[in-house]
């Protein structure tokens, strides 16, 4: 009696384990259909870098008319909603005055041109991003090429990353954004309510060999390239011009530079 019961439990246990493992085997087994395995790889056209970076030449972007097409290009391809309520605003790239883009750097007697120049601000794609440190689910994380990404599938909407970001670069979907998207780009997903979003350096475009939308729309005012490559366009610009970054004193290592 005793031994047969033990035997039964053993068999039951093993079969329960088997049932649990079966789907895993299924995936492996069936991916070998036709005698070949399926595989996953990068596109040949994909652009790669050690650390993507951006140099914004503010001398070439002097009026609202200069920056508007750049902002619109991003908004359009990324399905950024236009909320009427300012509290619910979603912004990936937008313009700020010098004193807001560079708080702490403002001078009492400031160059007149700089004072009201429209500075484009976006996620700085920091080398040591505090937002990634704060995220409790790795929904925001840093890729090998330095891009700080959002995994919208995983975000629980705790907004710790928003508190951690010293640049105010992150937005939260306080409500379903879809009704507020004027022109939908069907090739890029919208977001759902309850997740955080921000600029992704156009990771989806880099994957197919294109530069970010804002760079393309800037008529050469924004340069984009590999900060790790001494021969790249951005490194060339950084060698030849004096540039500033936002709050680099905090040690986050912003990858967006400004020529003023």
């Amino acid at each position: 009696m005793e031994s047969s019961r033990r035997k039964f439990i053993k068999i039951a246990g093993i079969s329960a384990l088997g049932l649990g493992v079966k789907p895993v085997f299924n995936v492996f087994a069936s991916s070998e259909e036709h005698g070949r395995k399926s595989e996953i790889k990068k596109s040949k056209d994909a652009l790669t870098a050690e650390q993507w970076g951006m140099v914004i030449d503010t001398r070439k972007l002097t009026t609202a008319e200069d920056v508007e097409p750049i902002i619109n290009a991003c908004n359009k391809i990324h399905n950024i909603p236009d909320h009427q309520n300012k509290n619910h605003e979603i912004k990936w790239i937008w313009e700020e005055e010098y004193e807001h883009a560079f708080p702490g750097k403002e001078n009492k007697y400031l160059n007149e041109r700089i004072e009201h120049l429209p500075f484009l601000v976006l996620c700085n794609q920091c080398e040591d991003p505090p937002c990634c440190r704060a995220c409790p689910t790795k929904a925001t994380f840093q890729r090998e090429d330095g891009i700080v990404m959002m995994d919208f599938h995983r975000c629980i909407g705790c907004r710790f990353c928003m508190a951690a970001c010293p640049y105010g670069s992150r937005s939260f979907n306080f409500r379903d954004p879809r009704p507020f998207i004027k022109e939908k780009n069907n090739e890029f997903p919208t977001r759902m309510k309850g997740v955080v979003e921000k600029c992704n350096f156009c990771a989806e475009r880099l994957a197919v060999g294109k530069k970010p939308a804002c760079v393309e729309a800037s008529n050469g005012a924004i340069a984009f390239g590999d900060l790790g490559d001494p021969g790249s366009e951005v490194r060339e610009l950084l060698r030849e011009n004096y540039t500033i970054r936002r709050k680099q004193g905090l040690g986050t290592g912003p990858s967006v530079y400004y020529i003023v």
Binding site: N85, E89, I90, S171, F172, F174, K193, G194
Partner: peptide, 15 residues
Amino acid sequence: GFGLGITGMSRDVSW
């Protein structure tokens, strides 16, 4: 149903 938009929180005051 609606999202956290029914609260007074905003992009700047996110908690």
